[in-house]
């Protein structure tokens, strides 16, 4: 691939890197795994970039590759820690929110998402990003009806975790 294409890709990835960070934070529970997954997603994106035709938005395409990598390609390391210690001592992973209570809510949300299984995580992430059911179904390769059923179940599960 040409240097020009590489430069273009790196620029786009740099601009949209928050998408990958969100996926990494949902699927891993410590900074080291976060970085490993970030790297794997970036490699997969770059490998697939030549075939990216721009039929969809770069961010949508990026979401698909990032989720696919997290669900199917990434090998979790043995150092994964148990739920409950999620990112607690990791000052380098900070998300800026407008006040403390919002920051807390975001933290609570990530912790709740982490307890879901890999497919449920993908569903919730796409829901939170406001993606239509048609896109969610296309991304996962399931029917729209099935996507709705799974989404309702997952939302209820998430609600229970957030408001026990």
């Amino acid at each position: 691939m040409t240097a020009e294409l590489e430069q273009k890709f790196v620029k786009e990835l740099e601009t949209n890197q928050n998408i990958i960070h969100k996926v990494c934070r949902a699927y891993t529970n410590n900074a080291s795994d976060h970085n490993d997954l970030f790297q794997e997603i970036s490699i997969q994106l770059w490998k697939a970039y030549e075939k990216f035709r721009g039929d969809s938005k770069f961010s949508t395409w990026m979401y698909r590759v990032a989720l696919n990598t997290a669900i199917s390609l990434y090998r979790k390391s043995k150092r994964s820690i148990k739920t409950g210690e999620l990112y607690d001592n990791l000052s380098e992973l900070k998300y800026e929110a407008y006040d403390d209570s919002v920051e807390q809510q975001l933290d609570q949300l990530y912790k709740a998402i982490y307890t879901l299984n890999d497919i449920e995580k993908a569903l919730v992430l796409l829901y939170l990003e406001d993606k239509p059911y048609k896109d969610i179904a296309l991304c996962l390769g399931i029917s729209e009806v099935n996507a709705r059923v799974k989404m309702n179940r997952t939302k209820n599960k998430l609600k229970e975790i957030l408001n026990p």
Binding site: Q39, E40, S42, I43, T69, E92, L128
Partner: peptide, 28 residues
């Protein structure tokens, strides 16, 4: 809350990303 979040720290610059994409994949 989700949509308003901004990942502020540890933002990767283009040099780091360039190095990253040339590393070896460790996928399944």
């Amino acid at each position: 809350v989700w949509q308003d979040q901004e990942y502020t720290d540890n933002q990767l610059d283009s040099d780091t990303i360039t190095k990253m994409i040339h590393r070896r994949s460790s996928s399944i």
